[in-house]
Nucleic acid binder design. Structure first.
Lengths: 168, 168
DNA sequence: TTTAATTTTCAAAAAATATTGAAAATTAAA
DNA sequence: TTTAATTTTCAATATTTTTTGAAAATTAAA
């Protein structure tokens, strides 16, 4: 496989992969493109490479910046803005985990806390069964939350060697 | 909060949560409803509870069965099919992890293997930079794959106590 | 067998989501 | 300043995804 073809494959697959995880295809593709560009590139470069409109490019770059995955770079003597992706994949994963934890897991845990407080006699079969389900989800969710917190703080080397030991 | 309201909240939030993870809202809502029903219920019960059509209900139940999250139950003396969700949340999580690993992570790792074999001089800056990015993603992906394999095989109690030790 | 209840399928419609492109806003060079 | 390049916004449009509902298929009781 030629380099140019390999790059296209990577971009297209990363985009498809993203859609399975609730990330829009274009955002994932722009991210993929930036991941394999060693030097910063402009909005126009991205538009041309992916064949997408200016507005679309702009909005998705902004979103990638919000996620902390891409930085805007000002090059001296250049009029246009340039963009550069974080290349350290461990940092990228930690960033995504951190954001999704904050946006999705934490609100869910807060909701479960409130749902556990449902009114009524705890000996009532219906109430008991509901609380049991909610509690078990909450328990696992809290554990995941703690584990992810530790992961976010960890160094890659420490994390991997630690997992290695854990799983023999 | 009353039980009926708490149930509605849970179903609606579980649905919204699903959409952030590439799972369709209705499928997640049916799953939520079944999770908090201690006894098996019929397609008609689900249609009525969630206000959705027969076709939609049927297709999403089938999908939940494919994922191994719901079972069809034949009750003696009853004409209609009944449905029951797996209630052990640890089993549910393992099932979802197993499926998504197979459907998404493994094909991605296979692609990365192929992309790493890109033609050309490995000393060429462009080639080297591409291979470096692909390799680092692959490395982390392979580690995740192994870790998830172990998790899928693990008992909840073992897994949690193991994580506890790991993270002090 | 019929017959009626129930489930499944899938083309068409609706809803949700993503994309475009041109106008407005911003920025910095002249 | 003025001007031109660049970025941003967002209503309109296009695309994708989901949902519907009625017909077809299946199932089991009569």
């Amino acid at each position: 496989m030629k380099l140019i073809e390999a790059k296209q494959q990577f971009i297209s697959s990363w985009g498809a992969f993203g859609t399975h995880w609730g990330i829009n295809r274009t955002m994932a593709q722009i991210h993929a493109l930036l991941l394999i560009c060693s030097d910063p590139i402009t909005q126009d470069d991205i538009m041309e490479e992916l064949n997408i409109s200016r507005g679309n490019t702009n909005m998705n770059i902004r979103e990638l910046i919000n996620w902390g995955l891409v930085d805007r770079v000002i090059l001296p003597g250049e009029r246009k803005d340039f963009f550069l992706a974080e290349k350290d994949i461990w940092k990228v994963v930690k960033m995504i985990v951190k954001e999704r934890k904050k946006r999705e897991l934490e609100p869910m845990l807060q909701l479960l806390d409130r749902l556990e407080e449902v009114e009524g006699d705890k000996r009532d079969k219906n109430i008991k069964s509901f609380i049991d389900t909610i509690s078990s989800i909450k328990k696992l969710g809290k554990q995941a939350d703690k584990t992810l917190d530790t992961m976010i703080r960890a160094e890659e080397s420490w994390f991997i060697s630690s997992l290695m030991k854990m799983f023999k």
